[in-house]
Design a protein around this nucleic acid. Structure first.
Lengths: 206, 206
DNA sequence: ATAAAAATCGACGCAGTGTAGAATTTGGAC
DNA sequence: GTCCAAATTCTACACTGCGTCGATTTTTAT
């Protein structure tokens, strides 16, 4: 959000319109929660941000661009958190920590994550953001698996492929669970952690 | 597709319009492959089926209904296949057979499956169909896990919860792999089978 | 104070949807 | 075969939402 130099957008130095931009993303997020992506109209977003449709188009070229920006903002926050996490621990600890962090993230941003997943096909820009995010996870999981003794490599029963499958398992399981409740998410997390541990060759005694 | 008695639709006894209905679904499937759901317009479908928009609305109330019918047709085919599959085998065999069958299904109907998944949120009818399908899988996986010695129950580390997570893992992994190539799908299948075996408490030696 | 840049607005044209009613075709009953 | 009712198809219309344009107002920098 800092020096993006959006197509039609403004320059740097914090213009007034930056506030509006944030208001737009905020309204968008609220409306996503209320009516969902399809029902949400550009007019709704503009109204929610206190401007007219015409004005909104000064900031974003389309509804898709608005949502893409919202996803970008959220996902960048996720990347921050991932970067600062020390990852040189004992596997069992690392797995537990990763799952805990993932639960937090989904509790906080589940709505946007689900939206990103839903629109990955439709909106290429979002697809790129999310697949990049998935790659981060896959890389991290791969590292843990290898440190736990799983053979490195991309063959179907080696670390890289297993990590990918585990990543999708977690994504999809959290996608559904986060729609239900925090409790469901917590349980889902425990199940995923269990399977991850088993796949790493360790039984899952706390 | 037999005795549905669609809102505006025809009666039973195989009228001529049944051919049209199939033509419409066929055109819809073709267009989904060509341009995808969003780009595909009702006019396109009608044209593909050799009729006008107005005529199409005699058979289906909306684009969503058309796609829902397509998903229903495909998924019923899947249910057939699932019902006839004898499932009283030794776990290792059962798992291998299930994965083989799943690969076949995704090779044949990957496009419609992916569409169903994408639209599960948007189109309630499709959501129901797909979640019912998932339940079938989860039940089957649960049974295999229990027969392999995993403790029955719905707690996070018991058969039912694990089966759910494995189901989502397979769904998502196949969703992505089936977009790439048959080889990818085959590899993905091997990885999922491996994790399933491990989760069932068996190492995965062929 | 003032001119350039930023921001806002209202109105327009377009594309796609869903509906209505008229017209045509089809399938039997007679 | 012919004639009616149901089935099927078409054309035309009204509506909604999108994205663009040019005119207008507000900020910002000097």
């Amino acid at each position: 959000m800092s020096g993006h130099d959006r197509a039609r957008g403004r320059r740097t130095t914090e213009r007034k319109g930056d506030v509006r931009e944030r208001a737009i993303l905020g309204a968008c997020e609220a409306l996503l929660a209320q009516k969902g992506y399809d029902a949400m109209t550009v007019g709704d977003i503009a109204q929610g941000a206190g401007i007219t449709r015409g004005a909104l188009y000064f900031y974003f070229g389309s509804k898709q661009e608005v949502v893409a920006a919202l996803v970008a903002r959220t996902v960048e926050h996720l990347w921050e958190r991932s970067r600062v996490t020390a990852q040189a621990e004992e596997p069992r600890q690392a797995i537990a920590a990763a799952m805990r962090r993932t639960v937090e993230l989904w509790n906080e941003h589940g709505l946007v994550f689900r939206t990103a997943i839903d629109l990955s096909l439709t909106v290429p820009e979002i697809g790129v953001l999310w697949s990049h995010t998935a790659d981060l996870f896959i890389t991290a999981i791969t590292a843990v698996l290898e440190r736990a003794g799983v053979q490195a490599g991309t063959e179907p029963d080696q670390a890289s492929a297993i990590a990918r499958a585990l990543c999708w398992m977690i994504e999809r399981t959290f996608y559904h669970a986060s729609q239900e409740s925090r409790e469901e998410l917590q349980k889902a997390s425990a199940t995923c952690e269990h399977i991850w541990l088993i796949s790493a060759g360790m039984d899952s005694e706390a």
